[in-house]
Amino acid sequence: MNIKRQEETLMGWSIMWWLFKLFGLPITIPWLIYHFLDIMQQKRKRAALSSKVIMITGASSGLGEALAHTFYRWGCRLILVSRRKEELERVKNDLMNTYQTIPTHPPIVLPLDLTDINNMKDEVSKAIMVHGRIDILINNAGITYRGEVINTSVDVDLKVMMSNYFSQVALSKIVLPFMIEQKSGHIVGISSVQGRIAIPFRSAYAASKHALQAWYDTTRAELFDKNIKITVISPGYIKTSLSLNALTENGQVYGLMDKTTENGYQPEFVAECILKSVLKQEKEVTIAPFSPKVAIVLRTLFPSLFFWIMQKRAKNK
């Protein structure tokens, strides 16, 4: 993370020098003032995170674990959710041994199968009542999929939809009454670029993320006067074990690290971007390279061209 901050600092100085050479002081000085004020504002907002209660699902590894580190070091009170209790305990110990926060808030470990949507309300409610409130819910847990539509069992479609869509909706509906009662709250849905565009051999995954996008958009509109913020994060590929655990057409585990995943963003970088989006209370953020962002624009403005490109991609499997 220190390397990333150094890179950002160097980039900032490069932009300033470029502006100075191109436009001189009349442009450079206002930019410097804006940049300085933005930095100060971000520091104040980060400091305001102290003691906020944040629930993170899928916190036992990958992006969820990175999010736990990112928010805990700012003094947040964490509720870590995952099916794997041992891994959650490991993350909890890593956090407490890595960061010396004052006061110290030991993270709450909540082992939970989020797909068991009819039996999780009591456990979630008890965990929230430890601190008496819930400020931010980060819906991060989910699975992915690889396969052809025609060969994919409907059971696989159901399993992916249950994990990626219904579990997030069910957990959000448990948390929302607490947020409405306290008259504030923020739900962060971790979607995907594939929630904005659909690519070949990802039908179940893309469908679940498209559904998620629609639910959050509707919820944001309906709760705008309740002081409930909704942020949808659409990342590109992240270097985690997600593809290793992907489901295949017949429900088996994929077990391979895709080249795209291997070359994806580091989870720590994505977690930092998510932190910034929470601080800015942004409604929607796409964390992806240039080409996926262009594809999103093409799908919107030139759908026929986008469909042709996807046909070529499917053919060249």
Rank of each mutant, 00 (worst) to 15 (best):
W308E: 08
W308I: 00
D116V: 00
Y265P: 06
N263A: 01
T9N: 15
Y205A: 03
R5T: 12
G255Y: 12
M161K: 03
M1K: 08
H69L: 11
T104N: 13
T70H: 06
R202V: 08
N139G: 12
P111H: 05
T104R: 10
I136V: 14
V156N: 02
E268H: 10
Y72K: 08
Q252H: 09
F201W: 15
M55A: 15
P30I: 08
E284C: 03
N2G: 09
E282Y: 04
I108A: 15
S291C: 00
K45I: 04
A141I: 01
L298A: 11
Q266D: 14
W18P: 00
E249I: 00
M310Y: 03
A59W: 13
E222L: 00
I197N: 07
T231P: 03
H210R: 06
V175H: 09
R44Y: 14
I136H: 03
G189I: 00
P111L: 04
Y145R: 04
R44H: 14
A314S: 14
R77M: 10
Q281V: 00
V154N: 13
D135V: 00
T28F: 11
K85A: 15
K43F: 15
I39R: 12
Y145N: 10
V278N: 01
S191N: 10
K229L: 08
I138P: 03
G132S: 07
I228T: 06
F307R: 01
W215L: 01
A206M: 05
V160Q: 02
E123C: 11
I296D: 01
I33S: 06
G142F: 09
K239D: 14
P267G: 07
L279T: 06
I138G: 09
A295I: 01
K276L: 12
L212E: 01
V232H: 03
G185F: 05
D116H: 08
D38C: 09
T101H: 12
L112M: 11
R196N: 14
T231C: 02
Q41M: 12
V297F: 14
P289A: 03
V278S: 05
Q42L: 11
I187Y: 04
K52R: 08
W308A: 08
I296P: 01
T248F: 14
N227Y: 08
D116P: 03
N2R: 05
K52A: 09
L242N: 04
Y216D: 02
I199D: 14
K315I: 02
I233D: 04
G142T: 12
K239Y: 13
